[in-house]
């Protein structure tokens, strides 16, 4: 597991986190390549099923990055996203998974440094949690067969 590099999906709002990632690029601030960005028009567009499907397809961690509280371009999209992330966390807990694999993060468009810092911190957190539990299932099956 030493060379384990997690796959992380980040749903980023067009008006803040995605622009912040762009800002990080413009400022030549690097962030881990583990983070794969999916641009969304607003984090309110991200539904619980999108996060679940990312995990089902093997993502080791998923975060939703939206505007600062109260600053959503569409008023309440980020507040809705926070509740949906909490719902997925509850489902993961019910399944006996680590709820920390899923997170909601807030930032503004100008926070390039914060985007990079968040990407580093989340990647480290997922590294400490280990791979998505479904990959453990595959390993166990291979060991049996």
């Amino acid at each position: 597991m030493e060379n384990y590099e997690p796959e992380i999906v980040a749903f980023c709002c067009h008006y803040c986190a995605y622009t912040a990632a762009d800002m990080a690029g413009s400022k030549r601030i690097s962030y881990p390549a583990n983070v794969k960005i999916i641009r969304v028009p607003c984090t309110g567009k991200v539904d619980a099923i999108h996060i679940m499907k990312a995990l089902e397809k093997g993502a080791d961690g998923v975060y939703v990055a939206g505007c600062l509280e109260g600053d959503c371009h569409f008023k309440t999209g980020n507040a809705r996203a926070r509740l949906r992330v909490a719902r997925v966390q509850k489902i993961l807990e019910d399944l006996g998974w680590e709820k920390e694999r899923v997170a909601m993060i807030n930032m503004s468009a100008g926070m390039g440094e914060r985007f990079a810092k968040t990407a580093f911190e989340f990647t480290e957190k997922i590294k400490s949690l280990g791979p998505n539990p479904i990959s453990q299932g595959k390993i166990e099956v291979q060991a049996v067969s």
Binding site: K53, I134, G137
Partner: peptide, 20 residues
Amino acid sequence: RKEVGLLASALHLNSLKQGK
């Protein structure tokens, strides 16, 4: 329909973890 999708996904996660 939405809850059906979510529950199906959760059940998939659970079985995949067990290697089934």
